[in-house]
Computed example of a mutant assay.
Amino acid sequence: MSDLTFRNATAADVPALVEFVTSAYRGETSRVGWTTEADLLDGNRIVPEVLLADIDRPRSRIVLAERDGVLLGCAHVAEEDGAGYFGMFAVRPELQGSGLGRTILGEAERTAAVDWRLPLMRMTVIDLRIELIDWYVRRGYRRTGQTKPFPATDPRFGLPLRDDLRFAVLEKELP
């Protein structure tokens, strides 16, 4: 991914990030890519107050991947319970499948392993998203067997279109 740069999001990035992340996950624009949640959820994917809290808290980084100042992808990496946590991963739908996502995931893993010296990375993925879970498995993640409930009553994270949503917990040991 030549000419790709990474930087940490700031409060000034929040409005653009809300729009970017939502367009990658929800609605018709998300259907251009292969990671859409448009058939599972409607509404918000992220809201400004959650982003601002993630930007402000210690050992938390919202990674922005840009080329020539244009936002191409992002992810949130943070320390939680002695491990790295990876979430809010979004790539422009038309660039999904280009290797950009793998590069962003690598930067998040580098942050957790090298900068913060954490032993593993953990994430939660809606368990119905088998194709996405398989993508993570090909990158060294494994299902832990644990699940977590989806926050179905919290509109900050979306409005479920079905009542069987839950998260699978995935982990990967970091070098």
Score class of each variant (00 low, 15 high):
L95N: 12
F6E: 08
P93Y: 10
A75N: 07
T22N: 14
R7L: 00
L118F: 05
F157H: 15
Y85K: 09
N8E: 08
S2A: 09
A152E: 04
R45D: 08
V91S: 08
D54A: 06
L159K: 07
P160T: 04
R26S: 05
V47F: 09
D163V: 03
V125R: 02
V32F: 07
V14N: 03
R156V: 08
R117P: 04
D54E: 15
G101K: 11
I55W: 03
T147Q: 11
I55F: 01
D13M: 03
L165H: 11
P160V: 05
L128S: 14
G158A: 12
P155V: 11
V50R: 14
G99W: 14
V137H: 02
G43A: 03
A11G: 08
A16R: 09
I130N: 06
L132Y: 05
A12K: 10
R129F: 03
V21D: 14
G145D: 04
P160Y: 10
C74A: 11
Y25L: 08
R129C: 09
M121P: 02
A24M: 07
A53C: 01
P93M: 11
G73R: 08
G158H: 09
D164R: 13
T35W: 14
T147R: 15
A75H: 04
G158V: 12
D39L: 14
G69W: 03
A9S: 01
L40F: 13
V114R: 11
F167I: 01
L17A: 01
D54C: 08
F6M: 06
Y136T: 09
E49A: 11
R31C: 12
D115K: 09
F86R: 07
A65T: 09
T147V: 14
G101W: 13
G106A: 13
D42Y: 05
T144N: 06
A24E: 07
R142V: 08
S2W: 00
L64Q: 05
D115P: 06
A38G: 13
E107C: 04
G82W: 09
E37F: 13
R102F: 11
F167Q: 01
A83W: 02
G97I: 11
S2K: 10
P93Q: 10
R139N: 15
F157Q: 08
G106L: 10
E19S: 14
V70P: 01
K148N: 10
G87W: 07
L41P: 12
R122W: 03
P58N: 05
A16C: 02
F157W: 15
D134N: 13
A53W: 03
P149W: 07
G73M: 10
G145R: 05
R26Y: 11
A11Y: 00
